[in-house]
Design a protein around this nucleic acid. Structure first.
Lengths: 200, 200
DNA sequence: AAAAACTATTAACCCGGGTTAAGAAATGAA
DNA sequence: TTCATTTCTTAACCCGGGTTAATAGTTTTT
């Protein structure tokens, strides 16, 4: 990837140069290892059983990550918008087939780096390793919290929480997926929304 | 406690002499440290805030152990019948006030040993320490499993599970407490039982 | 532009738990 | 024995999610 394309990755630049304080050299190092990948709406970026051999930065678009439970039902773990890293972290580290599916809900643009290049980069840029380790920890904790959430909160509480946390999702994600995320059926979500709109 | 009373503690004897292989000397050591305590139906053996300074073997009777949740509702952790050890293990070890309530559901007879005597005994009889440590681990694990159970199983599943695991409870524990254990209201339990009896 | 596919809502119905209040049955006490 | 208390069940009603099917609105495809 060369410098002239840089202007279309504002989030990516801001992340590494701004937030993370990469020097220009470090940043070009970084950039040269990535390549662009496009995924069309509804396409799968990842399926259960796949081995994750890359890291992908979601530059544009929206995805849903889910697993399939014992009964064959999809259980959505989270939606990703711009500036998320997507994939099956567990599979990336273990090298074993993963359990996650990742499907594009819009046409997506990814910045992809191979595991090998990423590990090399991490060696050269210690900050990167720290940052990613921190990120991973947060993600793992969030997954556990998410499962806990489904068990302890009512559907309505889960809905209101999502509305507060990621209000922008509702402009981009079909409600059927929101329902799946909340672990209820679409008609129930419709009724709930109607109920809530009457209250306020 | 002297030897002539021994015949009324068959479970206790069997536990230490039989299952656990105590010699006669070890057993009289043990016995001499215990004293008998009676608690009448509905009386509290322990309340939240109490510090547990003894261990009690439930020789006769039936109790319920519960905590009070954020909303002031009693949440029953388990029922104890003969041959259980009751109390707040956490408070026993930490020396801090505990969170558990233990209430007699029948007139109860306890074999009680003070913390000091128990610790002395443990030093003299290593087997005892091991056994109790094992026991504690199991109890802690069971508590976690129990909380998990309430979150993941339906009321009916929880009912059937209890029925299978401790069918004798139903002969001795008022259904209102069973309902509390299952985390439902008594009318719901009644309806459920009616439903189930029709099915079979 | 027309057809097909997808998405969201609604209705009608079931199901099971919560709530309240009433009454029946069992237990315990005077 | 009788009276009181406790325990259990039932009814009537609410509430909210699941299921199915119909409909209407949108988007995509051809």
């Amino acid at each position: 990837m060369n410098g002239s394309e840089v202007s279309i990755f504002p989030g990516f630049i801001n992340l590494f140069k701004g937030t993370f304080g990469f020097t220009d050299e470090e940043f070009s190092d970084l950039l040269s290892c990535f390549h662009i990948k496009h995924i069309r709406k509804k396409e799968f970026y990842l399926r259960a059983g796949d081995i994750t051999r890359v890291r992908s930065y979601l530059n544009k678009g929206c995805t849903r990550s889910f697993v399939v439970d014992e009964h064959g039902h999809e259980r959505i773990l989270f939606f990703a918008l711009e500036d998320w890293w997507i994939g099956d972290f567990e599979s990336f580290y273990s090298g074993n087939p993963g359990t996650n599916y990742v499907q594009a809900l819009e046409d997506c643009e990814l910045l992809v780096i191979t595991k090998e290049d990423f590990l090399k980069l991490e060696e050269r840029i210690p900050k990167l390793k720290q940052w990613y380790a921190f990120k991973m920890g947060r993600t793992a904790a969030a997954s556990l919290k998410r499962i806990e959430e489904i068990k302890t909160l009512t559907p309505e509480e889960r809905y209101l929480k999502l509305l507060k946390k990621q209000p922008n999702l509702f402009q981009r994600v079909p409600l059927q997926y929101i329902a799946a995320y909340l672990n209820i059926e679409p008609p129930s979500l419709s009724r709930m929304r109607k109920r809530l709109s009457k209250k306020s």
